[in-house]
Computed example of a mutant assay.
Amino acid sequence: MTRFEQHQEEAGSCAGCGVTLQTESQQKPGYIPEAAKSRTPVICQRCFRIKNYNEAATVTIDQNEFLKLLGGIAATDSLVIHIVDLFDFEGSLISGLQRFVGNNPVLLVVNKVDLLPKATNMNRLRNWVQKQAKAQGLRTVDVVLCSAKRNIGFDHVVEALERYRKGRDVYVVGATNVGKSTLINRLIRDYSDLDNELTTSRYPGTTLDEVRIPLDDGKAIIDMPGIVYPHRMTELVPKQVLQAILPEKILKPLVFQLNERQTLFFGSLARFDFVEGERQSFTIYLTDGLKVHRTKLERADELYAEHRGELLAPPSKAELDEMPAWTRHSLRVPRGSSNDVFISGLGWIQVNGTSGALIDIYVAKGVKVLLRDSLI
């Protein structure tokens, strides 16, 4: 038994997600059958099912509990690693993080850079990240670009951790589905002699309580539960749709030349209306699991009514009924600017022209939609 497993067993908590173990109710977090308590490592039934069957349980932790745990960091002397998802940067950035962590230094780790085209200028990207983070009120000691899954830039993460940790504990924070546990598993393998791995899956809320991973110097890496942000498309779609919208490989941009009063549908998850402006091109950065359909603006309502959940899919009609109704966001792209139309959890549309445009976005109510400086 490793020191990590011994620590979790003594604490009576799951070695996968950190939740307190219990044998009374299958519907509550931390359930474990009596017969499974002798296994090593000891993990709850939910983690067992995720690890072995990639099956999601419906157990969730109240958002107030997440914030309460996060707020405890301010009273510590620690290094805080904030992991964000580059594909969903504005949706996964904890803009109010500073008030939770106090004066502790924040290292911003931007994960999933492997999704961008290989010709992407990393120095420009890093500058873009710094500017966006500052605009959101986040003070950082450094920014590191990486892909934990593809082992890109991970040596820089380890170097930065060593540079800024200075013998302290390390808290790892982030929204759900940003690759937090994947990154910590890499740290476990590269930074300590522990052989246990945290539970990782595509499903939000995988980590249910803080998980402490002891280090050789007596300190620890603490994996915090993921913050669940309902403004992200990934939190609103049915579980079976996640695979279609979460990218696994390099994004293949789609370029559309549009006249004003033309519409693009992204499955049945979003609608893009080019309401007003000179003919120009738009570059779409989405997963290839989401098909794009073009039509005239005057036919858009009819097309959606007739083909939602069928030609325009995913989701299916039944899955759409589980989601909030669409709401409209009107965005004015200034003349002479370089902008993206960002849809949290779904991707972004780069506006390539500089003549300005009026754009309407229709998406499930609550999903964050905004105009930002172009990422690429």
Rank of each mutant, 00 (worst) to 15 (best):
R3E: 15
Q6D: 11
H7T: 14
E9Y: 07
E10Q: 10
E10S: 11
E10Y: 00
C17Y: 08
G18H: 04
V19F: 12
L21W: 13
A35E: 14
V42I: 15
I43W: 07
R46F: 02
R46W: 02
F48M: 10
Y53R: 08
D62G: 04
D62M: 02
D62C: 01
E65M: 01
K68H: 09
A75F: 14
T76E: 15
V80M: 06
L86S: 09
D88G: 03
I94F: 14
S95P: 00
G96S: 15
V101F: 13
V101E: 06
G102I: 05
V106M: 03
V110Q: 04
K112Y: 10
L116W: 12
L116V: 07
P117L: 00
P117G: 03
K118D: 13
T120M: 10
T120S: 14
Q130D: 09
K134L: 12
K134Y: 05
Q136S: 15
G137S: 09
V141Y: 08
V143F: 10
N151H: 14
D155C: 01
D155V: 10
V158R: 13
E159S: 13
E162A: 12
D169N: 14
V172E: 10
V173K: 11
A175F: 12
V178S: 02
K180H: 08
R186N: 11
R189M: 03
D195K: 13
E197R: 11
S201G: 14
D209F: 09
R212T: 07
G218A: 11
H231I: 01
P238G: 06
K239I: 12
Q243C: 01
K252D: 11
P253L: 07
E260A: 14
E260D: 12
T263M: 00
G267C: 03
L269G: 13
R271Y: 01
E276I: 00
G277W: 05
E278Y: 07
I284Q: 09
L290M: 03
K291C: 02
K296F: 11
D301E: 14
L303D: 11
A305R: 15
L312G: 05
A313S: 15
P315I: 00
A318T: 09
P324L: 06
S330I: 01
R332A: 02
N339E: 12
G345E: 08
V351Q: 00
S355A: 13
G356W: 10
V367Y: 07
V369F: 05
D373S: 07
